[in-house]
């Protein structure tokens, strides 16, 4: 296992779920409850020193028990290493801790995840939609159950209906 992942497992034996390494990218999955503590550790620990937030993203796996996967990617400018931190949230309770108090840049990135995937962030200062309109009520576009090729709305126009 990657030394960084080993260190996280040592510090958080309860919260650590698994670590994978593929194509040189290290990804560590942690349990939802431990997320904020792990993130704080990644930022503050001198051996970790992840001071730079790269992106926050989310993946929808509708067939899994815990449907949503939230992904943070961090980089250390001084240490020059990279880590991907992941956690899972079930659909019934898709809330994860916000990391805006550690990385201020997470603010807009988490708002985008909320907007696109409907995952709420606990303690986020201003959790509103960011790219879609505020009054958009048709769900969350990047979920897999959101139609990929439109909803056939063209058919609802009368002038396109050739039978009339």
């Amino acid at each position: 296992m990657h030394p960084l992942a080993e260190r996280i497992q040592m510090e958080f034996p309860e919260g650590f779920a698994k670590a994978t390494e593929w194509r040189g990218d290290l990804a560590v999955t942690v349990r939802r409850e431990a997320l904020h503590d792990v993130a704080r550790f990644l930022h503050d620990d001198p051996a970790m020193d992840f001071d730079y937030i790269v992106h926050v993203s989310s993946v929808d796996w509708p067939d899994d028990d815990e449907r949503f996967e939230v992904v943070w990617e961090f980089y250390s400018i001084r240490k020059r290493h990279r880590i991907r931190l992941k956690t899972r949230a079930p659909e019934a309770d898709c809330v994860v801790d916000s990391l805006t108090d550690i990385w201020k840049g997470a603010d807009f990135m988490e708002r985008e995840v909320y907007d696109m995937m409907g995952i709420r962030f606990r303690n986020h200062p201003d959790l509103r939609r960011i790219l879609m309109p505020d009054d958009y009520e048709e769900g969350y576009p990047l979920r897999k159950d959101f139609p990929l090729r439109g909803k056939g709305w063209r058919d609802t126009f009368e002038f396109l209906d050739e039978t009339k």
Binding site: V54, H55, S57, V59, D60, V71, K104, G105, D107, F108, M109, E112, L142
Partner: peptide, 23 residues
């Protein structure tokens, strides 16, 4: 994110302009 097959399962773009607007 690839789940196999010919299409990306999820593709996220880290756009610098978006992140700069956060500041």
């Amino acid at each position: 994110v690839s789940a196999g097959g010919g299409k990306p399962y999820r593709l996220k773009i880290r756009a610098p302009s978006f992140i700069h607007m956060g500041a």
